[in-house]
């Protein structure tokens, strides 16, 4: 049932077809950018950049490597953004897509801060707070209609694949085995399983992927403890006040009658 993207960094050539295809399919406007001494651009994800490639030059005993890393929503199973969304605008579909129903989004931005991968972005104004959250939704409309996500479909060297998550995990494991010692699969277990799996053959830190991503304890505290406690406290107080009213009123009536 659950789907997943497999990103094989060892095949990726950073042609950035995915970056452009994402904008094309999702009707995202271009950013104004600068060359700051790198091929990498835009500098960061934004409300109109849902996917970008990261370029990293690494030199070690094995010579020079030019690493490319996909940067977009990981569609976590244990998704901080979903947990934290006060209006349930960010939600998880059966296929594992972390979807944002922008109608429901109030732009609070809690998801932005709750994401261990720093993915969700807000548009709009910081001052008025009127905003919506934007991020990769794994081309939900395409997936719902049996098509691959735009980035996967466009990938020339076949670095991206899409399918049933268990198939993608199996394929990734096979690829890792084929690549040998340095290779590893990222995303199978992280956050109860990401729906974007990475095959890399350089250390995660070289790819700037968080080694043990986790949803901040604050998010758990807030969502699983504080909120229910809040309802409880308010419930108790409200109940107490109601009781008080009934009792006090009854007494007053009694007292009056007594007079």
């Amino acid at each position: 049932m659950a789907k997943a993207i497999m990103y094989d960094a060892t095949k990726c050539t950073a042609c950035r077809g995915c970056q452009a295809a994402c904008k094309q399919w999702n009707e995202l406007e271009a950013e104004e950018t600068k060359n700051t001494g790198s091929y990498e651009n835009p500098a960061d994800l934004s409300y109109r950049t849902w996917l970008k490639m990261r370029f990293t030059e690494v030199e070690n005993g094995n010579g020079l490597a030019w690493l490319f890393t996909r940067r977009a929503c990981m569609h976590c199973t244990d998704a901080g953004c979903v947990q934290v969304c006060p209006t349930k605008a960010v939600n998880k579909t059966d296929s594992g897509i972390v979807y944002i129903d922008r109608e429901k989004c109030t732009g609070c931005g809690y998801c932005v801060e709750a994401c261990p991968f720093d993915v969700p972005r807000l548009d709009g104004s910081r001052v008025t707070g009127k905003a919506k959250m934007f991020k990769c939704i794994l081309c939900k409309d395409r997936v719902d209609n049996g098509h691959e996500p735009a980035c996967v479909k466009t990938c020339p060297p076949g670095a991206l694949d899409f399918g049933e998550r268990e198939d993608m995990v199996a394929k990734s494991e096979a690829r890792v085995a084929e690549l040998g010692d340095d290779a590893l699969l990222y995303g199978d277990k992280e956050l109860d399983g990401l729906h974007v799996l990475y095959v890399v053959n350089h250390p995660l830190k070289d790819h700037k992927l968080p080694v043990n991503p986790e949803v901040s304890p604050a998010v758990t505290l807030w969502q699983d403890i504080l909120k229910p406690v809040g309802y409880g406290v308010v419930g108790i107080v409200a109940g107490g006040l109601l009781l008080n009213y009934m009792v006090a009123r009854a007494r007053m009536v009694k007292a009056k009658e007594g007079k």
Binding site: R16, A30, K34
Partner: peptide
Amino acid sequence: SSWLVEQMPEMFIEMSEELAAEKEIKNGD
């Protein structure tokens, strides 16, 4: 095409770290 300009916005010149050091050039200068 704005999507392409976004990815590669400006004319640039690639050089080695060694040459840059020799010419006192920093990345992005």
